[in-house]
Design a protein around this nucleic acid. Sequence first.
DNA 1: TTGATATATATGTTATAACAGTTATTGTTC
DNA 2: GAACAATAACTGTTATAACATATATATCAA
Lengths: 155, 155
Amino acid sequence: MSQNLQAELKQKKPFPRVTAEALLSVLRTAAVLEHQLTEALKPYGITHTQYNVLRILRGAGADGLCGREVGARMVSRVPDVSRLLDRMEETGLITRERDPGDRRHITARISRKGLAILAQATPELEAVERARAGQIPTGQLQQLIEVLGAVRGNS
Amino acid sequence: MSQNLQAELKQKKPFPRVTAEALLSVLRTAAVLEHQLTEALKPYGITHTQYNVLRILRGAGADGLCGREVGARMVSRVPDVSRLLDRMEETGLITRERDPGDRRHITARISRKGLAILAQATPELEAVERARAGQIPTGQLQQLIEVLGAVRGNS
DNA sequence: TTGATATATATGTTATAACAGTTATTGTTC
DNA sequence: GAACAATAACTGTTATAACATATATATCAA
């Protein structure tokens, strides 16, 4: 690939501020990652977003989670969890059931099929993970995590 | 905001690998940034993608650029530049003209209105930039840029 | 209880993203 | 120069994102 972001985006002038370059680097890197993850998941017929939901619901176990809580755990917030879960129920990845305790809640749970697809797809995503970050020293990754936390506003 | 990504996503268990946390941090941070940029641009009636196109076309000046070259310069690749430019021409942000030299190309140029909106919106985006990255030491931002370059596969 | 408010989900609508395939123009090869 | 391949843009279609609003249920206050 190219030497740096300026070359990748074919920009003639260097970035005016290091802050601008840093934030664009984050956006650009995320776009590259999302593209790779989407490609890796294509054989399994699920999107990156749906994979995320499956991970969340597997973590919740038999208790399941209501839609609002699924939304709160997503990496990028989805404004339409209802229909996302609709689609996943339709393809058999999850089940849904109205909570008898609070009839406003609909509890979603991962299905056997969802677990199977998750198990199949996970090694592929881990391969992407290794390909992208496996050669980077741990210390640098920890620095990355810390600075990104600062960008998101953590103190 | 919360202390770290694990808490932000309400995960009970810590991340199994630093590589996983690093890549999720990138995706999460990009989602937060994109949300902020979208909010900042809303008053001007343009999307983050359209802002990106305006920047690219301003950089190209009077020569303009063909659609394919616009696409190549985008931060996140857009598979449908035609209709993106359609919409921007419709709202008067750009002009388009068939290249007499190679009639396959359609040269896009930023309009006076596009320049005006770019000039209005830029300070708002720079405010987001300062709010997110202004307090982070330059050295850390340079580290961030470098490690993200490594994630994207630059050697 | 009644009314007001909050919460969780669902629905209607529009815009955009993503994918596949088509057309027009140019370049290349024999 | 005719056939073929390559390139740039366009079009058709489907799926999803984004936004606003509606509906059902629960909670709280008087």
